[in-house]
């Protein structure tokens, strides 16, 4: 886990780090991953991945509109005409 790799993960995670932070993270993540690599010792051939502690049935319901007394748009940092306002998503750079 080097600085470039950490920067690549940070791009995916949408987090900005300083150079210093990237260096520290490279060290910390290396030691964490070398510890969790102990899972390779476990024989998991023919083992099903865990899903849930208790058998649950799939829960379905009708897709119906229900009234809601809360205006969630008001919680947005910026809004206009009861819409959440955001920066342009489609432009030449992206």
């Amino acid at each position: 886990m080097n600085k470039d790799k950490v920067q690549q993960i940070a791009n995916l995670a949408r987090i900005k780090f300083s150079d210093k932070e990237l260096e520290v993270l490279a060290e910390e993540l290396s030691s964490i991953f070398s510890y969790i690599d102990q899972l390779k010792e476990v024989d998991v051939k023919d083992v099903e991945p865990f899903i849930h502690a208790i058998d649950l049935k799939n829960v379905t319901r009708k897709d119906e509109v229900k009234s809601c007394d809360v205006n969630l748009v008001e919680l947005a940092p910026e809004s206009k005409n009861n819409f959440v306002k955001t920066k342009p998503i489609f432009n030449e750079q992206h």
């Binding site: 949408r14 969630l72 919680l75 947005a76 940092p77 910026e78 959440v84 955001t86 920066k87 342009p88 998503i89 432009n91 750079q93 992206h94």
Partner: peptide, 14 residues
């Protein structure tokens, strides 16, 4: 920084 909570409100979307 778009739907709720704090936002740096900086630059473009990224």
């Amino acid at each position: 920084g778009v739907k709720f909570g704090m936002s740096s409100r900086s630059g473009d979307i990224l």
